[in-house]
């Protein structure tokens, strides 16, 4: 069996790639993809630990995470669409009608 530490390193790497993408990309759609990476990093953990502990909690939780990730993307795409209609762009740095 692959030691659980390896999974932790993998999930931490995926999480960090997602976080890096989220902090550096300006396109809202790439932003969504980065968030997906971060959520899937959590899923790797859940499934690896589920095997480690011998219970199904982690696997079930990863299904929940996938379902909610899909719901989040649905709402997110809707907001990005509205953004595009108002600003003619999906660049997250363009809307600046309010001070940050």
């Amino acid at each position: 069996m692959v030691p659980v530490e390896y999974y932790l390193v993998l999930s931490a790497a995926v999480f960090s790639i997602g976080l890096f993408g989220l902090l550096t990309r300006e396109n809202a759609l790439l932003f969504l993809m980065s968030v997906e990476l971060m959520l899937n990093a959590a899923n790797i953990n859940f499934i690896a630990f589920s095997l480690q502990w011998g219970n199904l909690t982690g696997q079930v939780m990863s299904l929940f995470v996938m379902g909610l990730a899909a719901a989040e993307v649905a709402v997110g795409i809707g907001i990005i669409l509205v953004l595009y209609r108002n600003f003619k762009d999906v660049d997250v740095t363009v809307p600046q009608s309010m001070r940050w």
Binding site: M38, N45, G58, G76, F87, P95, M98
Partner: peptide
């Protein structure tokens, strides 16, 4: 424009923080 900009910013930070939350939950489970 203000409303959709606010929605975008809320969504971006919300998606980030819920990803952080669920990763934290996965570590607690571990």
């Amino acid at each position: 424009r203000g409303s959709s900009e606010a929605g975008l910013k809320y969504f971006l930070i919300g998606a980030l923080s819920s990803a952080i939350f669920v990763f934290g939950v996965s570590l607690i489970y571990g």
